[in-house]
Design a protein around this nucleic acid. Structure first.
Lengths: 133, 133
DNA sequence: CTATTAATTGAAGAAACATTCAACCTAAGC
DNA sequence: GCTTAGGTTGAATGTTTCTTCAATTAATAG
C-alpha cells in the first residue's frame, strides 16, 4: 500500500459518476484486502521459491531431477549443467533452501532428488507455458 | 551438458561394480536426454515467466490481479505497490511480455487483468508452498 | 490550439545476483 | 597416520536487474 490517492479519486469519479472521500477510502480498503489476502510470510516464501527457480542453471537441475524420477549424484548433475563444481554446489544449496530439492549423503557420494513441490511447479509450467514467446 | 567425465566413471564403477567406456557414454546419453526432454525454446519461455514473477513488486501485482478477478486500473494498482509510477509501468510491461497480464486502454485510463497462466501459477504456488520457511 | 492528466519509454546509478577461485571439511584408501 | 577424492563454503568480481528521473506520447478538457 502506498502513494497519492488523487488520481484514484478522479478515477472513481469517472467510474461512479460521483465520489466522496469515503468512496476512496472504501476502494483503498478493498485493494488493501486483496494485497493482504495471503500473509506476508506466505508471499515471502513463494518469492523465495520463484527466485530459486528463475535461473537457468538451477531450473535445469530441477527439470532434470523431476524428469529422472530418482535421485542423482552430484557428479551426474555436473554433466548436465555448465558451471564449476562450486557453482553446482551453490545452486543445489539454493534449491534445498527453497524446498525444491533434497540431498542425502551416501558414502563418499552425495545424491539429490526433486521434492513434490518441484514436481508440481514444473508440471504447471509445462502445462501453461507454450514455447512461442 | 559439460565437463569432465572422470568422476562419473568412478561413480558408475561404484554403482555397477564395473564400468566400461560405453557405460559412461550411455549414462551421459540418458542425462542428455533428460536435459533436452523439453526444447530449449520451451525452457527459455518458462524461465522468462519465472523471472517475471520472481520480484516482489511484480508478484504482488499478479497476486492482486488474480485475486481481484477483474481488470484494475493502473491508478488502482499504484495504491498497492510501493514504487513510482514509472516503476509500476515497467513492472506491468514485464508481466505483459511474460504473458501473465493483459492490458487494455479505456479512454484515458489503462486497465490490466491477469491471464489464465497467471491464475494457474498462483494457484499452484499457494497450494505447494507453506509459509514456515 | 493549449494545457493538463494518465501512462509509457529510455538512460543511468544503485542494488542484487551468479559465478569463480581458493580454502576447507569429510570419508575412503593405502 | 597420510593422501586422495567428492563436495561445500566464503569472499571477490563481473554481470544482470531494479528503480528512479526526465522526457515523451496520447487522450481529454478548456
Amino acid at each position: 500500500m502506498a502513494q497519492s490517492t488523487e488520481r484514484l479519486r478522479r478515477y472513481l469519479e469517472d467510474e461512479l459518476g460521483e465520489c466522496r472521500s469515503e468512496d476512496v477510502e472504501r476502494r483503498l480498503d478493498e485493494l488493501g484486502t486483496l494485497e493482504a489476502a495471503l500473509g506476508t510470510a506466505q508471499v515471502g516464501a513463494e518469492l523465495d521459491v520463484l527466485s530459486a527457480l528463475s535461473n537457468e542453471t538451477r531450473y535445469t537441475l530441477v527439470r532434470v531431477l523431476v524428469g529422472a524420477r530418482e535421485e542423482l549424484c552430484v557428479c551426474e548433475l555436473h554433466a548436465v549443467v555448465d558451471v564449476t563444481e562450486s557453482g553446482l554446489s551453490h545452486a543445489l544449496s539454493a534449491l534445498v533452501d527453497a524446498g525444491l530439492v533434497e540431498g542425502r549423503k551416501d558414502g563418499r557420494w552425495k545424491k539429490y532428488r526433486a521434492t513434490n513441490r518441484a514436481v508440481a511447479l514444473v508440471t504447471v509450467l509445462d502445462g501453461s507455458v507454450s514455447p512461442d514467446e
